[in-house]
């Protein structure tokens, strides 16, 4: 691999070339894991579906067709071609609602991970960088948050903030944030003893620069893996909150909320229960497959075996 790398006249690799080589190497290890590639493809598909929902969805997801209540999917007797996956109890098209639901899941994942990641990194950097009593206090608070079962704490937070999608996302992000803080702190404490940090310090780099420019880029790998895991857990937990009536509120086409509305019909109409759950499972599985691949590709311990 290294033969193909462009070299600058001094024989040193240019920044762009280093980055390109890292990417090539990353992709080499990532693509070794077939599941990860499948996960990536499914995830990209999901993103495309979410982005083009308005174009590809056959119906308005909230439109109620009064003449088409609880229609089965098209291949079953009584199904109609205009409703491929059937309709729900108030006559809304399942397929369109599922398509729009992908927007919710992606949005939830992105928002939750962003809040938890940024919050966790800042808190972890501060704790790891300054140490002493600041570290003590911060880490005890993180321990306290982690002592609660995540879903229960999220539920209680939603009870305080009031039910709804925004509050559900904030609650989940708060619950996830300690994982990022712990990882960042551990990485910072490990990196801080290294020579390159001392060198930067001697060269007169300020605290902020040291934290964000020098140390942070070197502890990204575990954070990226954790972010992927949190993305999938966020989709799951948001759906669970929706299912319990504390997340996105009807008539939102959020998959968990759809399941909650469908619960009473499980004995009569399998499709209103099966499809939203399947959508959740597939998207979460795709992201977790990607996460496994990322871990293999980013974890140097596993690389050389």
């Amino acid at each position: 691999m290294s033969d193909a790398i462009a070299k600058t006249p001094e024989g040193k690799l240019s920044d762009a070339a280093i980055r390109r080589r890292m990417l090539t190497e990353f992709w080499f290890y990532f693509s070794q894991n077939k599941g990860a590639v499948v996960g990536l493809v499914v995830f990209i598909l999901m993103v495309i579906i979410a982005l083009t929902a308005t174009l590809i969805a056959p119906h308005d997801p909230t439109m109620q067709y009064r003449d088409a209540l609880l229609l089965p999917p098209v291949w079953q007797e009584g199904g109609r071609a205009e409703f491929l996956l059937g309709t729900d109890p108030v006559g809304r098209d399942m397929l369109s609602r599922l398509i729009y639901g992908s927007q919710y899941s992606l949005f939830i994942g992105i928002v939750v991970v962003s809040i938890a990641l940024v919050g966790g990194i800042v808190i972890g950097l501060i704790a790891g960088f300054f140490g002493g009593w600041i570290d003590m206090v911060i880490m005890r608070v993180m321990d306290i948050i982690l002592a609660f079962p995540s879903l229960l704490l999220a539920l209680v937070l939603v009870a305080i903030l009031g039910p709804g999608l925004t509050n559900a996302m904030i609650a989940i992000a708060i619950v996830y944030q300690p994982h990022f803080a712990r990882l960042t702190r551990a990485a910072v404490m490990g990196e801080q003893k290294r020579d390159y940090v001392s060198a930067a310090r001697v060269a007169g780099a300020g605290n902020l620069r040291l934290m964000f420019r020098t140390i942070l880029p070197n502890c990204l790998a575990p954070l990226i893996v954790q972010a992927t895991l949190s993305f999938s857990s966020a989709v799951l937990d948001a759906a669970a909150l929706g299912f319990l009536g504390m997340g996105a509120q009807p008539p939102a086409a959020e998959w968990g909320t759809m399941l909650a509305e469908a619960r009473e019909f499980i004995q009569r109409a399998w499709w209103v229960v099966t499809f939203p759950g399947l959508a959740i499972l597939i998207s979460v599985l795709a992201i977790n497959l990607m996460g496994d691949g990322l871990r293999d590709a980013l974890d140097p311990k596993l690389k050389r075996s």
């Binding site: 599941g35 999938s232 799951l236 759906a239 669970a240 299912f243 968990g256 399941l259 619960r263 499980i266 004995q267 399998w270 229960v273 099966t274 939203p276 759950g277 959740i280 499972l281 979460v284 599985l285 977790n288 497959l289 496994d292």
Partner: peptide
Amino acid sequence: MTSALVGFSMPIFWWGLLLIIFFSG
């Protein structure tokens, strides 16, 4: 291990409903 990853990704509230549909219904 594939099954384990599926299980790990499972929305258990849906899984429960599926089992009810199949085994109870």
